[in-house]
Design a protein around this nucleic acid. Structure first.
Lengths: 126, 126
DNA sequence: CGACGCTATATGCGTACGCATAGAATGACA
DNA sequence: TGTCATTCTATGCGTACGCATATAGCGTCG
């Protein structure tokens, strides 16, 4: 019984910490840069890794999004001119996603917003 | 710079922990009980507190949901017969939300599912 | 080569969300 | 009593999501 309530308490804590930060972050990114949280996270994955040209499946594996959600996120980013999609040459089922110069800049600006929000709303305790 | 990456790392960790657990929980609750995560959390609030009859605004304050999302969640729960809404007598703008017997039972069953999922997917590290 | 199973991505569909606003009831003040 | 600012909940609207399925390319075996 003790273990159960401890488990639920940890979950509650995670739930409220996450939602508090996520809501602020979502709003700030949207307002200042026209980006969804998923948009930003996707851009982030593309800058963080060595090659800034990644296959969809690699992105999907590194993220929390479902395959379909990632597909649409990348479609949004492409429409906004932040990434480009190119078919792989060796396996034409695959799709490479690549940051554009604009995408790189937008990410850099958005990262400032992210840091500002995190430092204000992400408490050390969780 | 050090502090910045530490902050971002904490956020990443929170993000992935949350999503891993939330996705499982959402699916399990939906499949086994026809409940959204928000549905369950709302029922949970109604059983946890002293009086199991609460005003919308009290629920809203105790939760992460927006006011409109809570309104619709309660509407769903009422439609399913798990809660009842009654106008307050003293302030008829307000709405009391009350668990039905069915709602109480459903919550008790769903809580087992919650505990099962949490014990499997909520790691001690967060 | 041709058929088949498998993998990678896209899309139809239904749902929950947040924002902005509408609608109803309150309290204060003339 | 009548007006008006305020509070509480509901709703119109547009968006992102997940699930299931469609589509296109791959590799193998005959």
């Amino acid at each position: 019984m003790e273990a159960e309530t401890e488990l639920v308490d940890r979950w509650r804590s995670l739930l409220s910490s996450y939602n508090a930060v996520a809501a602020q972050l979502e709003r700030a990114l949207q307002e200042a840069h026209g980006l969804t949280l998923s948009d930003f996270e996707t851009l982030d994955r593309l800058t963080t890794r060595d090659c800034d040209k990644r296959r969809m499946q690699d992105l999907a594996a590194a993220m929390y999004l479902s395959q379909s959600a990632l597909s649409r996120t990348v479609a949004r980013l492409e429409k906004s001119g932040l990434v480009e999609r190119t078919h792989c040459v060796d396996d034409r089922r695959g799709v490479f996603v690549e940051l554009t110069a604009t995408g790189f800049e937008r990410h850099a600006e958005a990262r400032k917003t992210q840091l500002a929000v995190l430092s204000r709303h992400l408490t050390p305790t969780g």
